[in-house]
């Protein structure tokens, strides 16, 4: 079991990539705290994890709210004594925006995708310093590396910010043996990607940009997160793990 004895927080764990990460982590022996704003879905994810014998709990988490973070970390530490892994996975696309460069959309996307990420890191770092060990995984995107005609620019900018924030944290806390890496998924079979591609009628264009000629699965990303969460990646920090079917190599 590659995560035996480890305690992991997965934000946005109620659905999509986050739910797949929670499932793979649990199957490798981790204890998982699922944080999300969708309590009903989040609880059902945790129910199915615990039904399979895993140790998991749900906590309401709006990643923009420090109070939510404090409550989540508090109950995680009380129950599980430590946090080894943080997966900052919660994110929104801004795809609903029909007005380009709408400032309201910009703020909303930045708040969830980058402020949320920063708050999570700030909350877990002191505990990881105490442990002299930790792995933080931030979900960026291939859109944090390149542009596209159908992505909201705020999404591009937020994911680029996640990429560089990861490196900043990686370099600053490397001596404490805290690692921090970003994952850059291409289009993945989730509701969020479906919204982007269907709303912009761009699915065939997206597929033409993917050398492997398919959309990724949530498991494809979850395995990448597993690798970065586990001690198998103990010499990897400040890296970008791109899981995009070759989109950015092309």
């Amino acid at each position: 079991m590659r995560l035996a004895g480890k305690v992991a927080i997965v934000t946005g764990g109620a659905s999509g990539i986050g739910a797949a990460i929670a499932e793979v982590f649990c199957s490798e022996g981790a204890t998982v705290i699922v944080g999300d704003i969708n309590d009903e879905l989040g609880c059902s994810v945790v129910d199915s994890l615990t039904a399979n014998g895993a140790d998991a709990m749900y906590a309401h988490l709006d990643v923009r709210r420090e109070g939510d973070w404090r409550r989540l970390i508090g109950s995680a530490l009380k129950r599980f004594k430590k946090v080894d892994v943080l997966v900052n996975n919660a994110g929104i696309s801004g795809a609903d925006s029909k007005i380009e460069f709408d400032l309201g959309t910009w703020d909303a996307v930045m708040d969830v995708n980058i402020v949320g990420c920063l708050l999570g890191i700030r909350m877990v770092i002191p505990h990881m310093i105490d442990l002299s060990c930790g792995s933080i995984i931030n979900m960026s995107s291939q859109m944090g590396l390149v542009g596209s005609t159908y992505t909201d620019p705020s999404y591009n900018a937020s994911k680029g910010a996640v990429r560089a924030l990861s490196k900043g944290i990686a370099v600053q806390y490397a001596k404490e043996n805290i690692r921090c890496n970003s994952i850059h998924p291409g289009p993945i079979d989730t509701d969020m990607a479906f919204d982007i591609f269907v709303n912009s009628n761009s699915m065939s264009d997206a597929l033409s940009k993917i050398p492997l000629q398919r959309i990724g699965t949530t498991r494809d990303v979850a395995y990448g997160a597993l690798f970065l969460a586990s001690d198998e990646s103990s010499y990897i920090t400040g890296s970008e793990l791109v899981i995009d079917g070759g989109w950015t190599a092309y």
Partner: peptide
């Protein structure tokens, strides 16, 4: 496990390039 990963550069460098 990496079936959707191609054309990437995986750094295993203790953070050398990230700084």
């Amino acid at each position: 496990e990496s079936s959707y990963v191609t054309g990437i550069e995986l750094l295993v460098d203790g953070g050398w390039v990230a700084q």
